[in-house]
């Protein structure tokens, strides 16, 4: 599976869903989530190096996302992608074990930077179960396609589970109980990015 393709596929998915993501954000935030991410990932696609390792490509993509996205999504997604790239290191091929380490690293970075735990209605509520499901599938002997599918399914369930949660982080937390009853846009976009991984892995399986 090509990591460059993942960046491109993610950018396509986000562009297609930008309107919906921003609408979700408008309910409990400032309504720019989809368009911010769209700008960041489009810039990341443009910045992708033609040569070099997958890890290097992710580091470049992450840096570009940090500097072009705006909002909290820029630092969070950008640093997560960058960390994933660092975890891949100099590997020429992304296998299931390496991708698992990259996902785990991305989760750690998001939690460190955002100081968020599960249950606070953030992207962690999609990413944490995705990483757990990935690792479980990997331990059960799953290949790249199986592990990423498990992760994507768990991320989508995790995103859905943010609806009854009260936001504890970010702008939505100012709303207190009124943040209950809405999907968290960051969890939804996280699930999209992991679905992009699963789609690519199954196409190349």
């Amino acid at each position: 599976m090509s990591i460059l393709d993942w960046v491109r596929r993610s950018a396509e998915l986000i562009a297609a869903e930008a309107e919906r993501l921003s609408r979700l954000d408008a309910a409990i935030g400032d309504g720019d989530h989809g368009h911010n991410l769209d700008r960041g990932f489009a810039a990341a696609v443009e910045a992708l190096p033609e040569h070099g390792t997958p890890g290097r490509a992710l580091v470049v993509a992450g840096r570009t996302i940090v500097s072009t996205t705006g909002g909290v999504s820029g630092p969070l997604y950008g640093m997560a992608v960058r960390r994933a790239g660092k975890e891949l290191g100099d590997a020429g091929v992304v296998d299931a074990v390496r991708l698992g380490a990259a996902l785990r690293g991305a989760l750690e970075t998001v939690q460190e930077l955002g100081e968020a735990q599960e249950g606070e209605k953030t992207m962690v509520d999609a990413l944490a179960p995705a990483v757990a499901a990935y690792e479980q599938a990997l331990a059960a002997g799953g290949d790249l396609a199986e592990c990423t599918r498990a992760a994507a399914d768990a991320a989508e369930r995790g995103a859905q589970a943010t609806v009854p949660m009260q936001a504890r982080k970010g702008r939505a937390s100012y709303l207190g109980k009124r943040s209950i009853g809405h999907l968290d846009p960051g969890a939804v976009s996280t699930a999209l990015l992991i679905r992009a991984l699963a789609d690519l892995a199954s196409e190349h399986a």
Binding site: V66, V72, G74, P75, M79, G170
Partner: peptide
């Protein structure tokens, strides 16, 4: 606040 703090941290 918010993204300013996160951007500054990074």
């Amino acid at each position: 606040l918010g993204s300013s703090v996160l951007t500054a941290k990074v």
